[in-house]
Design a protein around this nucleic acid. Structure first.
Length: 586
RNA sequence: GGGGCAGUAGCUCAGUUUGGUUAGAGUAUCGGCCUGUCACGCCGAGGGUCGCGGGUUCGAGUCCCGUCUGCCCCGCCA
């Protein structure tokens, strides 16, 4: 037996017991005579004492110990002397008095010290991931990830959902993200594709009558990466039969409540707001609004129109508008700092950025103050909630990008100036998404969610011919702390409707049949109404742990260049392997 | 595809603005001292291709060009 207890286990009630511990040496405090060694494992740390007056040979042996050695240790649990307790440690009331010591595995001087107070570079952490993963923070993150998935599985299981696995080697569907392709050995020149999501499979399962399905599943997308995106990522994929949108949302809310209570040990909001897409764009410039701070976008076109400020009047005359928000505490921004902010919005397509603030003389300063009547600006300031020391930031533009870009600026400033209350969790639904958006490059309509999303019937009938941009879909996103945590929709369950939607997004009958024949066919054989949702597990765990990169909640993540630094992937392969796959090296 | 930041001792960083003696600190490592520490303390030693390649210069960590790697953002991500 390697151990009788783990390193986070011993308490007062164990005093007097003979125990065996095994773990990693985390720190050594050699006081010349007595030596203290902290022994660490996944569960915690326990202090071990060696005393030369009681056991000189053993203490001598303990002098050899170094960080990260793996040792087995037998000893007696005893109470720490008065004043020697460590209240920071769960095991801090006791210590193990060393009786015998066995070095299981020595450790070379580690390139990264799990106990280090410094944060090693990410490159280093990924290259020596096994050392990085020993760190308390990473252990905590991965354990929370496990607990969250346990809660997910138990929640769905107890609500009649069953977990069904779907294939990783699938058919390529060129819409959406770029596919990862896998060459076929048995079929020269043919390729499998790794799934971007199990979307069509889960719909087929609904048609097959499985009623309620979920799966914790890996998905693959070959696009460029970010702090919250990896080439492979984990989804909780969910699909339900005979449901309307509200039924799906209710199931999800039940899950989130359980996660908050069981995993986060936090109260869950009474109700989750539902914010229509259009309103979300207007108020936050985003379909994943971060509501943990104010400074919402405000339309101030009406207040400023027709008072002789050329840019504003012209923009409004051409159908545009003026958007502003309050930047609390940034009244002292210098001309130079403002011009950096202005470049930020200019790079993203806006014409400029105007500050709204009072000068030292108490008058409104800058171009707005110069060209517009003070009483108008007072009204605007009131509307924005401007206070002393604040500044209003104002932009006029003809297009919807005025909301999007100002929303980006709002977020950027919030992050840089610490406006976000990290202790608060904010969860809401964004609903009533448009069905399609115009694709300038390809001159056609694109599905905003995916082409299996059911339209809202009323707007479909009303706008299908006249203005498809006004068609709403039955899609919904769950937004958690400004991050898309889950997205889903009610699906089309009728092959004619599905064909009409393919037609709208410019997919010819032949192409549609070629790519999605199995689904179109299945829809003809008794397809029930169904809908579902998929959660981004990595992002959810990131939010739950308060990390700002999903790499910190994934055991073996890739870099932003999609490289696995630890094992070294991707890599070249033998010519022989290529030949078997009917491929030629470049 | 585009933009930004970074790369100096095993690790975390300073030094680069303004080129100039032997490239520093903390920590880790090694040695010495120290019997109640918990980031133990004190003394000492070793440790450097300043990411890589080229250029300018009497002289480059520092300036210029190229390149690689990591991170962040835009595009992209149905």
């Amino acid at each position: 037996m390697y151990r009788t207890h783990h390193c986070g286990q011993l308490r007062k009630e164990h005093i007097g017991e003979e125990v065996t511990l095994a773990g990693w040496v985390s720190r050594i405090r050699d006081l010349g005579g007595v030596i203290f060694v902290s022994l660490r494992d996944r569960y915690g740390k326990t202090q071990v004492v060696f005393d030369p007056t009681e056991n000189a040979d053993l203490t001598n042996e303990a002098k050899r110990l170094r960080s990260e050695w793996v040792v087995q240790l037998k000893g007696t649990v005893r109470q720490r002397p008065d004043g020697g307790e460590n209240r920071e440690m769960a095991t801090g009331e006791v210590e193990v008095f060393g009786g015998s010591l066995h070095v299981i595995s020595a450790c070379e001087t580690p390139p990264l010290q799990p106990e280090d107070e410094f944060e090693p570079s990410e490159e280093h952490r990924l290259r020596y991931r096994y050392l990085d993963l020993r760190r308390e923070r990473m252990q905590r993150n991965l354990q929370l990830r496990h607990r969250m998935l346990q809660t997910v599985r138990s929640y769905f299981s107890s609500n009649e959902f069953i977990e069904i696995e779907t294939p990783f080697l699938t058919r390529s569907t060129p819409e959406g993200a770029r596919d990862f392709l896998v060459p076929s050995r048995l079929h020269p020149g043919q390729w499998y594709s790794l799934p971007q999501s199990p979307q069509t499979y889960k719909q087929i399962l609904m048609i097959a009558g499985y009623d309620r399905y979920f799966q914790v599943v890996r998905c693959f997308r070959d696009e460029d990466f970010r702090a919250n995106r990896q080439p492979e990522f984990t989804q909780i994929d969910v699909e339900m039969t005979f449901v309307h949108q509200d039924d799906v949302l209710a199931v999800v809310e039940g899950l989130m409540k359980q996660i908050f209570i069981e995993v986060l040990d936090t109260e869950f909001p009474e109700r989750i707001d539902r914010l229509p897409y259009d309103e979300s764009i207007r108020r936050f410039g985003s379909d994943k609004p971060d509501r943990r701070f104010g400074s919402e976008l405000v339309d101030i076109g009406d207040e400023l129109n027709g008072h002789g400020f050329g840019v504003i009047d012209k923009t409004i005359a051409s159908g545009g508008g003026v958007v502003a928000f309050r930047a609390p505490g940034l009244g002292g921004l210098s001309r130079k700092e403002l011009s950096i902010l202005e470049s930020f919005v200019k790079e993203r397509g806006l014409g400029g950025l105007m500050p709204l603030r009072k000068g030292q003389d108490g008058n409104w300063s800058g171009p707005l103050g110069k060209f517009l009547p003070a009483d108008r600006l007072d009204v605007v300031a009131e509307k924005l909630g401007l206070q002393d020391g604040d500044i209003g930031l104002v932009a006029a533009d003809a297009g919807m990008r005025r909301y999007e870009v100002m929303g980006m600026l709002r977020l950027k400033l919030a992050r840089e100036n610490d406006w976000i209350d990290k202790k608060v969790h904010d969860i809401l639904w964004v609903t009533e998404f448009p069905m399609v958006e115009w694709n300038e490059d390809e001159n056609r309509w694109d599905a905003l969610h995916h082409p299996f999303t059911a339209p809202d019937p009323e707007s479909w009938n009303q706008y299908r011919e006249s203005d498809p941009s006004k068609i709403k879909s039955q899609a919904y996103d769950l937004v958690w702390n400004g991050e898309e945590a889950a997205g889903g929709s009610i699906r089309i369950h009728n092959s004619e409707m599905q064909e009409q939607v393919f037609e709208l997004i410019g997919l010819s009958k032949e192409e549609a049949r070629n790519r999605f024949n199995f689904l179109l066919e299945a829809l003809k054989y008794g397809a029930p109404p169904h809908g579902g949702i998929a959660f981004g597990v990595d992002r959810m765990v990131m939010n739950a742990t308060g990390e700002s990169s999903i790499r910190d909640v994934i055991a073996f993540p890739k870099t932003t260049a999609a490289v696995a630094l630890f094992e070294g992937a991707p890599s070249s392969v033998d010519e022989k392997q290529l030949t078997e796959l009917h491929l030629k090296g470049i």
